[in-house]
């Protein structure tokens, strides 16, 4: 507790970096997953390929992916871009399946009605399918958000600073207060991410609120 109070400035700046490293990939991942999921949904033959393909990426352990990024991107090992890209890969891997499930959850009669009224395929996606898929997509996004916050901590092992730095530093120098602060701060940040996703989904789907 005293450790945390003495280091509020550091904690704040690490929290902000953690938010960016976990949050930006979440948004980028969603932006990539929606069109991928949509294509997989429209062309059922592509669905298994897309889902299995992205699923394979998800099997790569995070530390290994961080380390392999420079090979792919030509970056230096300490570059935060490695973390952002790696986290985006994970987010896409989780969300493609979710987007497909979400689009499949749209009632067929509603979809047919929209087509019958003359919606084009993009307008139908934007005005009918995506809004109705929000609950399912949001559920997947919550999993991705919480898992992103947790995984980003690991990047402290390759020297990219964020809340995980409190964990490595606390461990290396055996400062229990710092280690505990890192765990609590990461948990709280995960909770905030979760609440933001839930809140946004609720705002976007007013027809579902009681």
């Amino acid at each position: 507790m005293t450790w945390a109070l003495d280091h509020l400035g550091v904690i704040a700046s690490l929290t902000w970096r953690h938010t960016l490293l976990a949050g930006i990939p979440l948004l980028l991942g969603l932006l990539v997953a929606i069109p991928l999921g949509w294509v997989a949904h429209r062309v059922p033959a592509l669905a298994p390929v897309t889902i299995v393909g992205t699923g394979l990426l998800y099997t790569i352990p995070s530390l290994a992916l961080f380390i392999l990024m420079p090979l792919v991107l030509g970056t230096r090992i300490l570059d935060p871009i490695n973390v952002v890209v790696a986290m985006t890969v994970y987010t896409v891997a989780l969300l493609v399946r979710t987007v497909v499930d979400g689009l499949r959850s749209v009632p067929a009669d509603v979809d047919a009605a929209a087509t019958a009224m003359g919606f084009g395929r993009f307008r139908r996606l934007w005005q009918v399918q995506l809004p109705l898929a929000i609950p399912v997509i949001a559920a997947g996004l919550r999993v991705a958000a919480v898992s992103n916050v947790s995984i980003v901590s690991i990047a402290s092992l390759i020297g990219v600073a964020q809340l995980g730095s409190l964990l490595t530093d606390g461990y290396n120098r055996a400062i229990a207060g710092e280690l505990l602060t890192g765990i609590v701060a990461a948990l709280l940040l995960a909770l905030v991410f979760d609440l933001v996703v839930v809140g946004t989904a609720r705002l976007l789907t007013p027809w579902r609120s009681p």
């Binding site: 919480v146 898992s147 916050v149 947790s150 901590s153 690991i154 402290s156 092992l157 809340l163 995980g164 964990l167 490595t168 606390g170 461990y171 055996a174 229990a176 280690l179 505990l180 890192g182 765990i183 990461a186 948990l187 995960a190 909770l191």
Partner: peptide
């Protein structure tokens, strides 16, 4: 409990 950062859990446990 899955929200707990794994390295936090790992470090704390081995430290204590």
């Amino acid at each position: 409990a899955r929200a707990v950062p794994t390295i936090g859990l790992l470090f704390a446990t081995s430290l204590w």
